[in-house]
């Protein structure tokens, strides 16, 4: 039962996305982007709803569910661990 390989195209996608990520990092590191705020401009950014992972408990519970029910997992940069999930 032949299955069209996806890893070839997938590698291209990962390569492109990783390239964008690295380019972004280089731009940010160079300081030329002009992005960002002054320390006194962080009022809105300090709100709970503006945090990158505002509720780690929800993230951990969701990751456990999807880890158990799907073929792919991870990538969010959060700590995890194995389980014999069904």
């Amino acid at each position: 039962m032949g299955h069209e390989p996806v890893s070839g195209g997938g590698k291209v996608v990962v390569g492109i996305l990783t390239g964008i990520l690295l380019a972004w990092a280089m731009t940010a590191l160079s300081g030329c982007s002009g992005m960002g705020v002054q320390p006194w401009e962080r009022d809105i950014l300090a709100r709970p709803g503006m945090q990158v992972d505002p509720d780690p408990v929800v993230t951990a519970l969701d990751e456990h569910i999807y880890f158990s029910k799907e073929g792919s997992t991870g990538g969010l940069g959060t700590a995890g661990g194995g389980c014999g999930c069904n």
Binding site: A28, G36, V37
Partner: peptide, 8 residues
């Protein structure tokens, strides 16, 4: 990588 773009 985490980047603040602007105030919002």
């Amino acid at each position: 990588l985490t980047q603040v773009i602007d105030r919002r």
